[in-house]
């Protein structure tokens, strides 16, 4: 392992950490602005032009607020839970190729931290570990609402995980690899080669499961304000609560990168236009998360489990079987 590789990796890790923790903050601003636009309000307007500095104000507030550890909680677990959510979100990013490789000052840069050949499995597995944050936070707080939220977290996790895996199986069979870079190469020929045209069912299923994975609105059960206050976050304050938020928004950004890479051609042939295209697709999927939040009501936990186990899972299995038959004959 030479020194250049080590330095390059460390720089990449730092850049990804900085960019996405900043983006997670700005993501909250986007969310408030877009929700305000859809509900005919103004949203944040007072801090800076168009409320742009609201992110900084929120950050200062979260950092300087007192970090309260209530009595009766399991201290160690309570303290470590938010860190799990944030850390695993960024760990999952290690296997995502954010841009095509480019040359900087005569040095070729691959914007992926670790190109392991089981990238998809790794990303899904580590993102799944992220749900331990809400679960542990909910179980460690001595609060009935938090406990309810933890129970819902476990139910959500067990439901969507099956759908994600099975829906991805069909495209993986077609590409014959688990690496996101191989997925991108497979679709590099242009719009006609995109996997979404041959696997529309898998695309829709994965998209639905992505909402459950990030805990966004139709499946926003684990912190449903109108039923269980803030769920796992009820007892938290200050930066620990903020870490939950950074994890959630970073996860949204990462899954918005993964969906286009898997189904919509990724960065294409690796040109500048392709890179812009990937960022554009990512922006659309992120916007779609916010759009659904403005437009859709939440489902009940039993409805989510019914949907995942009795509707989506059989469809995913049938999709895998049909893909297998088509590939064989």
């Amino acid at each position: 392992m030479d020194t250049a590789y080590l330095i390059e990796t460390i720089i990449k890790v730092v850049v990804i950490l900085l960019v996405f923790s900043a983006l997670a903050g700005i993501g909250t601003y986007f969310e408030r602005k877009i929700l305000a636009f859809m509900q005919r309000r103004l949203g944040p307007m007072n801090v800076g032009p168009y409320g742009l500095l609201q992110v900084g104000a929120d950050g200062i507030k979260l950092f300087t607020k007192e970090d309260i550890i209530p009595q009766g909680v399991v201290k160690n677990i309570f303290k470590i839970a938010p860190v799990i959510t944030a850390a695993t979100a960024f760990m999952a990013a290690a296997a995502i190729p954010f841009l095509p490789s480019f040359t900087l000052f005569g040095y070729e840069v691959h914007p992926i931290v670790a190109d392991i050949n089981v990238g998809i499995l790794y990303i899904l597995g580590v993102m799944a570990v992220g749900l331990y944050g809400p679960l542990l936070g909910g179980m460690a707080s001595a609060n009935k609402f938090s406990l309810l939220s933890a129970a819902r977290g476990a139910a959500v996790f067990i439901s969507y995980e099956v759908v994600t895996g099975l829906s991805l199986l069909a495209p993986i069979m077609m590409v014959g690899s688990l690496s996101l870079i191989d997925f991108n190469e497979y679709q590099a020929g242009g719009i006609g080669d995109w996997i979404v045209w041959s696997q529309p069912v898998a695309f829709i299923l994965f998209w639905i499961a992505a909402f459950a994975e990030t805990g966004r609105t139709p499946f926003h059960l684990i912190a449903n304000d109108h039923e269980i206050i803030d769920g796992f976050g009820t007892e938290y304050s200050g930066m620990r609560w903020g870490l939950f938020f950074i994890g959630e928004y970073a996860n949204m950004f990462f899954i918005s990168f993964v969906i286009p890479l898997l189904f919509l051609g990724g960065y294409g042939d690796g040109s500048f236009l392709g890179a812009l295209g990937l960022l554009g697709k990512m922006a659309f999927f992120f916007f779609f998360f916010l759009w659904t939040r403005a437009a859709w009501p939440d489902v009940r936990p039993d409805q989510l489990m019914w949907l995942c186990w009795k509707v989506l899972m059989p469809i995913a299995v049938i999709n895998v079987v049909i893909t297998g038959f088509v590939m064989m004959f």
């Binding site: 790794y122 749900l131 129970a151």
Partner: peptide, 20 residues
Amino acid sequence: DFLGAIQIIVYTGAVMALYA
């Protein structure tokens, strides 16, 4: 790599059921 990723996926799910 494959077995490593599978280890993470399988045991997060299994221990999650234990938590339940």
